[in-house]
Amino acid sequence: MTEAPGPIDSYLDQLLAALRCEPSRIRRILAEAEDHLREAARARIDAGAEPMEAEREAVAAFGPPALVGARFRATRTQSAGGLLLGVGFELAMLATVALLAIGLSGGILFAFGELKGTRFVVRDESFTVVVPFGPCAFMTLPGEQPPPGHGAGCTPEYQQQLADGARTDELTRDALLRAVAGAAGGLMAVGLLLSRRGIAPAGVSRVTPALGAAGFTVLALILLFAAYDAHTLGGYGREGAGMWLSGGLAALAGAAVCTAWLARAVRVSVPRVPGAFALPR
C-alpha cells in the first residue's frame, strides 16, 4: 500500500504547481524549500513536537505556495521578449475565457430551443426564407406576398411551415458556430495549461482579469437588458429573447471566471501569515 504524503511532501507538490519558470530553476527552488522545511521540522521535533505537527508548523511558517510562487515570479528579471510573452499569455487566457463563454452560450441557446421552442430564440426578422421553387418561390420573409404569378398554393399555413423550418435551421447554425468557438477555446485552454510552466507572468496579472471581469459584466448587462426588452417590451418583436439571454448568461459566467481569477491574483500578492517567523529556538 502506498504511504500517504506528509505535509511537507504535499506542500512541495503545491509549490511545484505554483512555480512558473524554467525546469532547472524549479528544481533548485524545490530542493531549497525541502531542505528548509525538513530542517525546520527537525528543529521543532527536537523542541518536543510530534513529527506530523512539526511538519505542519514548518509548512505554515513557510507561507502559502501561491504566495511564495508569486514572489519568485516577481523577483525574476524579465527581458522585453519575456514581458511580451507574459502579456500575450494573459491575453490568450482572456481570449480562452471568451471563446469558452461563446461555446457555453451555444449550449444554452440549443437548450432554450429544445425547452421553449425555436420562436423563443430566433425572431422572424433575423433570418430569411429562400424558396427557389414551389408555390412560395421567391418569398424571402414569412408573410411576404409572393410575386404575381407565383401565389397559387402559397397559403399562410404553408408559409409558416417554411418559416419554422428556416427558424430551426437558423438555430442549429448559430448553436453550431458557437460550439465551434467553444471547442477552439477548449483547445486553447489545453495549450495554455501545457505551456504555462515555461512562461513567466507579465506582472499585469491583476489588470487583465480586472479588464475581463468589467468587460464581461457590461456585456452581460447589455444582453440581459436586450433579452428583457425583447420578451417584455416587444422592442425586438417579442421573439428571440433566448438569443440575447443565452449570451447574457454566458457573459455572466465569463465575468464570474474573471472575478475568481482576479481574487486569486490579489490573494497571492498579499501576505496573510501573521507570526510566520516563529522558528523554534
Binding site: 527552488i29 531549497e32 528548509h36 514572489r71 501569515v273 517567523f277
Partner: peptide, 10 residues
C-alpha cells in the same frame, strides 16, 4: 518581522 519564511528565498 512577521513575514512568511518562504518569501525570503526569492
Amino acid at each position: 518581522f512577521a513575514l512568511p519564511e518562504g518569501t525570503v528565498y526569492p
